[in-house]
C-alpha cells in the first residue's frame, strides 16, 4: 500500500462520504443534562467544525452532533470520533483524546499497544495521516471541538 493509500484508508473515505453525527441537533440541557457547543477553525485552510455535546448528570456523553466543512481527513475524523465517544464517560473520553494525540505524533508508526489500538477502533485508520505533518491538524480539528464543548458545558468542572 502506498503512503497515500495508507492515509486515505477506505474507512476514512467512507466516513467522509457518510459522516456520523452530521447535522446539528438542538441541545438537550434538560433533566440535569449539561450541553456545550464549540466552533473550531483551522485558519490556514479554512476548515471548520461546529460541534455540540450532551452529557448526562452521571458524566456520560449522551450525544454528539456537528456541522462542518473541510477535507476528507478533517470530516472523517469528526465522524469517527463521534461514533467512538458516544456512550463513553468523561474519563474514557479524556483517555481516547490522549491516545489519538499520541497516534498523531507517531509519524506513521502507530501506538504499538494492542489495548490502546482496540480502544481507538476505526480511529487507528488515521495512523497514515501522522506521516504528513501538514495534515495532522486536520485530523485533530474535531477532537479540539469536543474538548472545548465539554469544557463549555461545565461537565469537566463537575466531574
Amino acid at each position: 500500500m502506498s503512503t497515500l493509500e495508507q492515509m486515505y484508508q477506505q474507512v476514512i473515505l467512507d466516513h467522509a462520504k457518510r459522516p456520523v453525527g452530521h447535522g446539528l441537533v438542538d441541545l438537550a440541557g434538560s433533566h440535569g443534562h449539561l450541553a456545550g457547543e464549540s466552533h473550531q477553525v483551522n485558519p490556514t485552510c479554512g476548515d471548520e467544525v461546529t460541534l455540540r455535546v450532551d452529557v448526562t448528570p452521571e458524566g456520560t456523553v449522551a450525544g454528539v452532533s456537528w456541522e462542518g466543512q473541510g477535507c476528507s481527513i478533517s470530516q472523517a475524523s469528526v465522524s469517527v470520533m463521534t461514533s467512538l465517544v458516544k456512550g463513553a464517560d468523561l474519563a474514557e473520553v479524556a483517555r481516547l483524546d490522549g491516545l489519538f494525540h499520541d497516534l498523531m505524533s507517531s509519524r506513521g508508526k502507530g501506538l504499538d499497544d494492542d489495548d490502546a489500538e482496540d480502544a481507538l477502533g476505526d480511529a487507528t485508520a488515521f495512523t497514515g495521516v501522522s506521516q504528513y505533518p501538514a495534515r495532522i491538524k486536520c485530523a485533530l480539528l474535531g477532537w479540539a471541538a469536543l474538548k472545548d464543548s465539554l469544557a463549555r458545558s461545565g461537565a469537566l468542572a463537575t466531574s
Partner: peptide, 13 residues
Amino acid sequence: GVHAHDVGQVLDD
C-alpha cells in the same frame, strides 16, 4: 466532491 487539501495531497503523491 473533493476538498482542495485532498486534491493537493494526491498531486503531491
